[in-house]
Amino acid sequence: MKQLYERTSRTRTASEMDKFTRAAIGAHAEEYQLNNLIPSTLHYFEINSVRIHKPGLLARLTGLNDSDAIFRTLVIVGSNYLVIVISGHKKGINVLSAALDSIVIDAPSSAASIENGFHIRGSWTNDEDFAPFYLGISNDPEGRLIFNTLCLAVRESRQSPGRHRRR
């Protein structure tokens, strides 16, 4: 498959999160009655994506192309929830979250074999269905760290009954 985006990933701390993103996550947490989505000791991942190729004519005519050529994705793996924040100039800030114990990761068994990303299926707070989400990551050690961290958190959430408090 042709690579559509050039991605870079890095680990960040809660103190580095901008106030607009923090406010969007806070509003999401309040709307869905989720507690402590951003603990003060949190480390999270930031993925910056830059579109490599111009969208095809059909995608531009139908509006199916991504509206932002450059966008940022934050991956926050908390103690009970996975929070994904996508932000771009045109798309604004969008927040998704799912309980870790509801997540299924559709990916190769080895992080070394992941090239550009993987699918996460879960019961997202803003969707009634068990729905997929494609998480594009960088093809480097930091991208593989995102995959490994999420796999470990999902595995641990299933091994700790009563860890997750449902809404």
Rank of each mutant, 00 (worst) to 15 (best):
P108H: 13
S102A: 12
D101W: 01
S113N: 11
R72V: 13
D66T: 06
D66S: 03
S87L: 11
V83Y: 03
I114L: 15
L58N: 00
D68I: 02
G78H: 11
I93N: 08
H89S: 05
V95N: 05
F71Y: 15
K90V: 09
D101I: 02
L64G: 15
E115A: 06
I114F: 04
I76V: 15
E115G: 04
L58Q: 03
V95P: 03
I70P: 00
R60V: 02
L58P: 00
R72P: 02
A99S: 14
I76M: 15
G63H: 08
R72W: 04
I70H: 13
V75K: 04
H89L: 07
N80E: 15
G92M: 10
T73I: 15
V104Q: 08
D101M: 02
V83I: 11
F71Q: 01
A69I: 06
K91F: 01
L100G: 11
S87N: 14
L61D: 00
D68T: 04
N80R: 14
N94K: 14
I93A: 09
A59W: 00
V75F: 05
I103R: 08
D68S: 03
N94D: 12
A98Q: 06
Y81N: 13
A111R: 09
S102L: 06
P108T: 10
V85Y: 07
S102D: 15
A59H: 07
S97C: 08
G92C: 05
I86P: 00
L64N: 14
I93C: 07
S113F: 11
L58V: 14
V75A: 13
G63W: 11
A111I: 04
F71C: 09
K90P: 00
I103K: 04
I76L: 15
S87C: 09
I114Q: 13
N65L: 01
N65W: 01
R60H: 04
L82D: 01
N80V: 03
L82P: 04
A111T: 09
I84N: 05
D101P: 00
N94S: 12
P108D: 14
N94P: 00
V77H: 07
L61A: 13
V104C: 06
K90M: 09
I105F: 15
T73A: 11
S87H: 10
D68N: 06
Y81R: 15
A99G: 14
D101Y: 02
I84E: 03
S110F: 10
N94C: 02
A69K: 08
A111P: 08
E115K: 09
L64W: 08
I70G: 06
I70T: 15
I103G: 05
I105H: 10
V77Q: 07
I86Q: 13
S110N: 12
I70F: 13
Y81T: 11
S110Q: 14
S102H: 08
L82T: 05
N65S: 05
T73L: 12
G78V: 03
T62Y: 01
A111Q: 07
L82V: 06
A59Q: 13
A99V: 09
G63M: 14
D66N: 05
V75Q: 04
Y81P: 00
D68A: 07
A112P: 00
V95F: 06
S102E: 12
N94W: 04
S110T: 14
T62M: 13
A107M: 10
A98G: 09
A112H: 10
V95H: 06
S67P: 08
T73S: 14
L64I: 02
V104P: 00
G63S: 11
D106Y: 05
N80I: 03
S113M: 13
V85A: 07
